[in-house]
């Protein structure tokens, strides 16, 4: 039943320098070790999935990579450059964008306005006090293209808060895409999506595959195995395995810790 991953136009580059290289990253909250000695490398243009049970520390890891949470120890290199000292917005400008597990959009602005803001952020200064913004047609043109890309072309004028949940998730990814990232941190893009909406999201990510590297945090195993080039498994704050989907599927430790349940749930009749 699972459709094959669309044939990749370009093979994932073999062992070129990774876009993202995380070394010895640890974070604890009080007595809880959220991330312990994380080692992770995302290769250029690959989709690297990060899976693990609830509470494994996936969102904590994403927050640290995005610069919204400071790690206790460890280093993060993006395109060979150490980025721990950079603030969240500086990392975005460097080419590392994120989406949120809990939808974070400008609910009272239109879809077009949401995307235009993200385009504005990277094109020229926003300390512009005189020229009316609606004359700034370039940012709205780009925003229209982005709306097209994420499948919201016919919803441009709608207030973001009035969109259906699935459309809001598309906008969420659209906002991250609008920053022109070279690495996209996607925190559960399928969260709360129905089967059709999930299909649309998978198609959207598959279309981006090969252009932008992605670290895909996801619970939807169907999506993960269809999209990912490699998978890392995070359990109780530690990465217990990294490898190709086939290798992960076969990994005994992973099966024991996590995947067995998800696999059987997937191959059995859909209960939910």
């Amino acid at each position: 039943m699972t459709a094959a991953v669309p044939a990749m136009t370009a093979p994932v580059p073999a062992r070129t320098a990774p876009v993202l290289e995380v070394r010895g990253l640890s974070k604890h909250f009080g007595g809880v070790q959220a991330n312990a000695d994380i080692e992770l490398a995302v290769a250029a243009r690959e989709i690297h999935a990060l899976i693990g049970p609830n509470g494994a520390g996936k969102t904590t890891l994403v927050a640290q990579l995005a610069g919204m949470l400071a790690p206790d120890t460890g280093s993060i290199a993006f395109e060979g450059r150490q980025i721990q000292a950079l603030a969240a917005h500086q990392r975005v400008r460097a080419g590392l964008a994120r989406s949120f597990q809990i939808t974070s959009i400008f609910r009272r602005f239109s879809v077009l306005e949401n995307l235009a803001l993200a385009v504005q952020a990277r094109s020229g200064t926003s300390l512009s006090f005189w020229r009316p913004r609606h004359e700034d047609t370039a940012i709205f043109e780009e925003a229209r293209e982005l709306a097209q890309d994420v499948g919201l072309a016919d919803r441009e004028e709608e207030l973001a808060g009035a969109l259906a949940h699935g459309e809001q998730r598309q906008l969420e990814v659209g906002l991250a895409l609008a920053t022109c990232p070279r690495l996209l941190l996607l925190d559960e893009p399928m969260a709360g999506l129905g089967p059709e909406e999930s299909e649309r999201m998978i198609a959207l990510l598959a279309a981006l595959k090969g252009q932008i590297a992605m670290l895909l945090v996801e619970h939807d195993m169907d999506a993960v195995f269809r999209l990912a080039d490699r998978i890392s498994v995070l359990v109780a704050g530690r990465i217990i395995a990294t490898g190709t989907p086939q290798a992960i599927r076969a990994d005994a430790a992973v099966r024991a810790a996590y995947l067995g349940d998800a696999e059987s749930a997937q191959s059995g009749p859909r209960s939910r």
Binding site: A66, A87, F106, L117, A118, A121, A176
Partner: peptide
């Protein structure tokens, strides 16, 4: 938060 995440200072 979202403004920071799209690169605004």
């Amino acid at each position: 938060t979202r403004m920071e995440a799209i690169g605004f200072a």
